[in-house]
Every structure is written in structure tokens, then in C-alpha cells.
Design a binder for these strands. Structure first.
Lengths: 188, 188
DNA sequence: GTCTATAAATAGATAGAC
DNA sequence: GTCTATCTATTTATAGAC
């Protein structure tokens, strides 16, 4: 891995990540990424053979960030319930972004179910990381239906994210966040 | 309104509706609609000046179908709770489609938040129709927070739809449908 | 009202100079 | 590694014959 071009590669991935989120994968062109990075289109193909490879790198980056964040929770918070509660703060911390562009994972996956199935499978990977981590937390709480609780929690978050982006109501997001935290506290 | 071309117009809208759902609005081209209808691209512009106008017609059609369905429930079912329960059957009746392409309303809205805001506003209209109808049902049940319950029910349905399309698990959909029906029965 | 031909812009991708 | 020029295909949209 030469260190020379990794700067450009990283800048391309970061700009693509933001654009894929704010404007969608299919609606983001190489020109858009070029404008955002001041790197000419032609140079992209030195790092990525296709647009799909950029998407793969973007999702790999998201998964890496997710793993870093979740490992941090595991290290810093001893109570699995507190870890789950901490994670749900993401919907209020990222409230503005969610109201403007929806959930980064959910909207990408919703877009890619309608494209090639290989792309959708890739976007599913980030959800699997989240689901498995949540399952571990519910298991650590001694709950036998941990896997189902994990999917249910993901569904609650996705439901809030969709409605937040449709109606753009900050009070709704706040109220729903509280309801989700209450639900987590009720699982025993 | 000449009757001559309304046949073609209707066929264009119906083909577009299906394609916008299965492949997305931005990923559907005039050529795709032309292939599906055997109507040449050039003729589209006699009925619609732009692609956005086709989308408007598609959403207006969905809203009309929604109103017909909901009015039917109002006429045939006397208990508001039973009407809500009846509506939620949509997620199991349309289970295959939802697992393959997500919720027609939710995925369209998630796609269009990232496009022009006028398009997103239009897609929001269908949600408003649903929300207002649900609010009426909860009000008829004598519940003071009817508006919030309506949004919460919509969020539950959207959450299930997103997770159904991500994991494509029919058992999950069935289980979640039961949970939603239980939740509706608990609102008193 | 219907259809063909085509314009004008943009997409992803490639070749090759530097 | 970087960048310019370009290819090919496809997009929305228009002009105008029929």
C-alpha cells in the first residue's frame, strides 16, 4: 500500500460518503465527487475501477466507524442496557441530518433494494453489524429473545427516521427517542 | 378532456407507478416506461411536459386509490379500531412486494428527500392522507393524543417495511404484524 | 393525437501523455 | 500517481412530419 495516493483515496471516499447520504448513490455523479474534492474524474479510476467500488469503500468505512463506536461503548460502559440507551442518542444527536436526509443506513438500503442485488447485499452488511451488536447486548441482559429484540429496536429507529424525514418535526423525534428509551428499560 | 388519449395517459401513469416503485423514480427512464407500454417516448410529452409531471400524476393516483380504500373501510366497518386493524393487513397482504421493494410510500419519500424539495413535498401528501385518516380513527376511539398515535402507527409500519426489505424475513413480518395489532388493541 | 428523428446535456469509463 | 481529452451510451426534452 503506497502512502502517496492514500490521501486522495481517502478524500474521495469521504466526499462520496457525504454525497451518497445527502443526494443518494445513483444521483451522485463522478463530477459531483470531483467538484467536492478538486480531484479530476480521471484520477478516480486509479483507485476504483467502477462506481460500485467507491460504494463498497464507503460502506466499508461506515462499518469500520460503526465498529469503532460500538467497541468504544463496550469498553467504556459496563451495563449492556446503558450501552443500548447510549446508542439511541444517535437519533437526537443527528436529528438535523435525519430530518434532512433520513437514516444513512436505511435510506441507502432503501435505494439499493431497487438496484442490483449485489449493491443491496453490501448495504445490508452495516445493518448486520448493528443487529449483531444489539443482540449481544440483549443477550448480556439475559433476555432469551435477544435476536428479535435487536430487530425490533432497529425497526423502531428506522420508523422514527422515516417519519422524521417526511414530517421534519423535531418534537416528534424527541418524543420518540424518549419512548424508545422507555421501551429499552422495560425489556427484562 | 378528450377521451381519445386518456387511454394512453392512463397506461403511462400505471406503468410509471409500478416502475417507480420497483426501480425507483430516478432510476426509471422514459425508455423504461416506453418499453413497458409500447408507447413511443415522444408521445409522453403530449400528456406530460416533464418527468416530474408523471410523478405528480402517479402520486395523485396513489392518493386517489388510498382515499377509495379508506372510504371503503369507513363505509363497511363501523368500529374505528377494526378499521385500523384492517388497514394494517396491508403489510401481510403485500408482504412479498414489501420484502422486495419496501413500502411504496416510504421508499419514494426516502428517495425524494434527496432530490428537489418540491418532489418530496408531493410524496409527503400521501402520508398526510394516511396520517389524517388514522388520526380520525383514534379520535373516534376517544383518545386525546390521536395525532401522535397516528404518527406512531405510521412509524411502526415504516420500521417494519424497512427491516422487511433489508432482511427479507417473512416470519419477521408476520410477527411484527401481530405486534402492531396487539398495540392497536392496547390503545384505550 | 401519434410517432420519428434528433438535439443537448450528462453519465460512467478508457487511453495515454506527463 | 496525476491529469486531460475523449469515447460510448443514455438521459430528458424538442421539432416537426403524419
Amino acid at each position: 500500500m503506497g502512502a502517496k495516493g492514500e490521501g486522495n483515496r481517502q478524500r474521495i471516499v469521504e466526499a462520496a460518503e457525504s454525497l451518497f447520504y445527502r443526494r443518494g448513490y445513483n444521483q451522485t455523479s463522478f463530477q459531483d465527487i470531483s467538484d467536492a474534492t478538486d480531484i479530476p474524474r480521471g484520477n478516480f479510476y486509479y483507485y476504483f475501477k467502477t462506481k460500485e467500488e467507491i460504494l463498497n469503500a464507503v460502506i466499508d468505512g461506515r462499518i469500520a466507524n460503526l465498529n469503532t463506536m460500538l467497541s468504544g461503548y463496550d469498553a467504556e460502559i459496563s451495563d449492556p442496557r446503558e450501552r443500548l440507551l447510549k446508542f439511541t442518542n444517535i437519533i437526537e444527536h443527528g436529528r438535523g441530518d435525519v430530518m434532512q436526509s433520513g437514516c444513512p443506513l436505511g435510506t441507502l438500503s432503501s435505494e439499493l433494494v431497487k438496484d442490483d442485488s449485489a449493491l443491496h447485499e453490501k448495504s445490508k452488511q452495516a445493518f448486520i453489524v448493528l443487529r449483531d451488536w444489539m443482540t449481544q447486548q440483549f443477550e448480556a441482559l439475559g433476555l432469551s429473545d435477544a435476536g428479535e429484540l435487536a430487530i425490533d429496536l432497529l425497526a423502531k429507529l428506522q420508523g422514527v427516521a422515516v417519519m422524521a424525514s417526511v414530517f421534519k418535526d423535531a418534537e416528534y423525534v424527541k418524543r420518540s427517542h424518549l419512548a424508545i428509551k422507555n421501551w429499552i428499560n422495560l425489556q427484562r
